[in-house]
């Protein structure tokens, strides 16, 4: 019995909790990608770097707050800075739209042209981030490190295995839940939100109904700024901030959005968790859990790791290809053909 409990705790500690946090981060990222796809109708390659920019803005504000002695108790100061970071990123995205994307929208350019344009934007944003904050590792998580640490948990329960819940994990889950709830409330209950869905559904009819496309697009960029910055800051708090790691998140984020069905917000969330848990499950060394469940003589000798963690891209990729081959519109029906 205690063996079984130990196994559950080990599983939660190494797989379920980190997987959920990573899934929430991917889901927020994928929501941004999917919204842009639904409204502006292109795959935004600059999204990873938008996340990096938002995180950087938040870090700079955090440093500013810290330097004047403001902190947030046991929570990271970055949470106070987050709204300002979002605002800065929102301004950047609105400016980018004005200066760059709008021209192609007016021309009714093909989606692939917009994708290439977004690659240019990606270069510029990536350069901007490197220029401002550099390429080094930035750790900006302050406040308490653990809500509950492994030792306390062991003492409390008397089990051999500890369950550590880091503050950042908890914050990730709570913030992501709030963000998603707000987003769905906005999309389903407000006039502007509904007009966004209408625009995404049928652009021409939305125009005939008097919905102003430029307003819809502007609101979309602002929401994307909020989602991208939040996702980026949560990821950065959880791991650390590095200019180019965000670019690498592009693949799992796109995989999540496509697996869920591009253009479908609910799908993006589901896709985020599918990708995250697959990555964690397949790259986790199961020995730790199995030793509690198997009889002594059958205990595994190796780590029982299906794939080394360096292949986590391969996992997103395999899921992506499987979905593309068998269900190209994604698990939830997306817009794409």
């Amino acid at each position: 019995m205690t063996d079984f409990l130990n196994a559950i705790v080990a599983l939660s500690n190494f797989v379920l909790v980190p997987g959920a946090a990573y899934g929430a981060q991917l889901a927020l990222g994928a929501l941004g990608v999917t919204l842009i796809y639904g409204i502006l109708r292109f795959s935004n390659f600059a999204h990873g770097d938008t996340m990096a920019f938002g995180t950087m803005a938040t870090i700079l504000v955090t440093w500013g707050l810290q330097s004047i002695g403001i902190s947030f108790g046991f929570l990271p100061t970055a949470l106070i800075a987050l709204p300002i970071g979002i605002a800065i990123t929102g301004l950047l995205l609105l400016g980018t739209d004005r200066a760059i994307y709008r021209f192609y929208r007016k021309q009714k350019a093909a989606p692939v042209v917009l994708v290439i344009v977004s690659i240019g934007v990606m270069f510029v944003m990536n350069g901007l981030v490197r220029f401002i904050i550099g390429v080094g590792d930035v750790n900006f998580a302050d406040g308490a490190r653990f809500v509950i640490n492994a030792r306390e948990f062991k003492e409390m329960t008397g089990l051999d295995e500890g369950l550590a819940i880091r503050t950042t994990t908890l914050i990730t889950l709570v913030t992501a839940a709030i963000a998603v709830a707000l987003l769905f409330w906005f999309l389903n209950k407000t006039r502007t939100g509904k007009s966004m869905r209408a625009f995404s559904d049928n652009e021409d009819l939305a125009l005939l109904s008097g919905i102003n496309p430029e307003r819809v697009v502007a609101v979309t960029w602002l929401i994307v700024a909020a989602l991208a910055t939040t996702a980026g800051v949560l990821y950065g708090l959880d791991k650390s901030f590095k200019a180019f790691t965000y670019f690498q998140l592009l693949l799992p984020i796109f995989a999540a959005a496509i697996v869920g069905g591009l253009g479908n917000p609910l799908g993006a969330i589901a896709g985020g968790f599918v990708i995250a848990f697959s990555e964690v499950l397949i790259t986790y060394a199961w020995k730790k859990v199995l030793v509690y469940l198997m009889p002594e003589n059958l205990e595994p000798s190796g780590l029982v790791q299906l794939l080394s963690t360096d292949y986590k891209f391969a996992v997103s990729f395999a899921i992506l290809i499987t979905v593309l081959l068998f269900k190209p519109t994604g698990l939830f029906k997306g817009q794409s053909v």
């Binding site: 869905r197 209408a198 559904d201 049928n202 109904s209 919905i211």
Partner: peptide, 14 residues
């Protein structure tokens, strides 16, 4: 001529 993913009532609202 409709918004397919929106409900009937939302179509009318739009």
């Amino acid at each position: 001529n409709i918004f397919p993913s929106m409900t009937v009532e939302e179509n009318l609202e739009m």
